[in-house]
Amino acid sequence: MEGTTISLHMSNVETIPGKNITQSLGLVTGSTVRAKHLGKDIFAGLKNIVGGELKAYTELLNESRNEALQRMMMAAHTMGANGIVNVRFATSNVAAGASELFCYGTAVIVE
């Protein structure tokens, strides 16, 4: 299953607009910890001379957040859910050089 893309109904509100929730299956979470390779770190350091957007970091965080979402969807999928409501994101700096991206939501069955 790893590597395949699952698509579920997702929203960050209490319902899925246009659908009826028939059953709630409980909390699902997904997380990933990422670090940057040194080369890009040096490049970001150079970019810091002018400031502004640090594209290397933006890309990294986007990739990792998608991975965390994918893991959460996998968890929901194995529970037999076809939707996740109330999705929340959290970012934390767990160690120097690494960041944890975490998302959680409630797995539901909708029709």
Partner: peptide
């Protein structure tokens, strides 16, 4: 707000975007 009593949308999707910004070293 999450209330949407006035809307009846046939489908929806989760949107998320992030961006990293920082001031320059001199700043």
């Amino acid at each position: 707000s999450s209330r949407m009593t006035n809307f009846s949308a046939p489908s929806s999707t989760l949107l998320h975007v992030s961006i990293c910004v920082g001031p320059s070293t001199g700043q």
